Amino acid sequence: MEVPDGLVLALAFLGMACLPIVVAMVLCVDELIDRIVCGFADWREDRRERRTISHLDRAVEADSLTRDYDLTEFDRTDRLSIERIAADLRTLGGHRIGLRSRAVLWDPAVLAAYDERLRQASRCLGITEHLAELEGVDREIERIRVEGELHAAGLALPAARGVRGQHQR
Rank of each mutant, 00 (worst) to 15 (best):
R50Q: 11
R50M: 08
R51N: 05
R51D: 05
R51L: 07
T52L: 14
T52P: 01
T52H: 12
T52A: 10
I53S: 00
I53Q: 01
S54N: 07
S54A: 13
S54E: 10
H55K: 13
H55Y: 11
L56Q: 01
L56T: 01
D57V: 04
D57F: 02
D57K: 07
R58F: 01
R58H: 05
R58K: 06
A59W: 07
A59K: 07
V60C: 01
E61Y: 03
E61I: 05
E61G: 00
E61C: 07
E61M: 06
A62I: 05
A62Q: 00
A62F: 01
D63M: 01
D63P: 00
S64H: 04
S64Q: 12
S64P: 01
S64C: 05
L65W: 11
L65M: 12
L65F: 13
T66A: 13
T66N: 08
T66K: 08
T66Q: 09
T66H: 07
R67P: 01
R67C: 04
R67S: 11
R67T: 06
R67H: 03
D68E: 15
D68I: 14
Y69R: 15
D70H: 09
D70V: 11
D70S: 14
D70I: 12
L71D: 01
T72W: 07
T72Q: 08
T72N: 05
E73L: 15
E73R: 15
E73Y: 13
F74P: 02
F74W: 14
F74H: 14
F74M: 13
D75M: 11
D75L: 14
D75T: 10
R76Q: 15
R76C: 09
T77Q: 13
T77I: 12
T77M: 14
D78E: 15
D78K: 10
D78H: 11
D78A: 14
D78P: 04
R79L: 15
S81M: 06
I82K: 08
I82R: 09
I82S: 13
R84E: 08
R84Y: 10
R84V: 12
I85A: 08
I85M: 11
A86L: 10
A86I: 04
A86Y: 04
A87F: 11
A87L: 13
D88H: 12
L89I: 05
L89C: 07
L89M: 07
R90W: 14
R90N: 15
R90P: 04
T91R: 11
T91A: 12
T91D: 10
T91I: 10
L92P: 02
L92M: 03
G93W: 04
G93A: 02
G94M: 04
G94R: 09
H95K: 14
H95M: 15
I97F: 05
I97H: 09
I97L: 12
I97M: 09
G98L: 14
G98H: 13
G98M: 14
G98I: 09
L99I: 11
L99P: 00
R100H: 02
S101W: 06
S101F: 06
A103P: 02
A103T: 12
A103C: 13
V104P: 00
V104L: 04
V104E: 02
L105W: 07
L105I: 09
L105Y: 08
L105D: 03
L105T: 10
W106G: 02
W106I: 03
D107R: 15
P108R: 02
P108D: 00
A109G: 00
A109S: 09
A109W: 03
V110M: 03
L111N: 10
A112W: 02
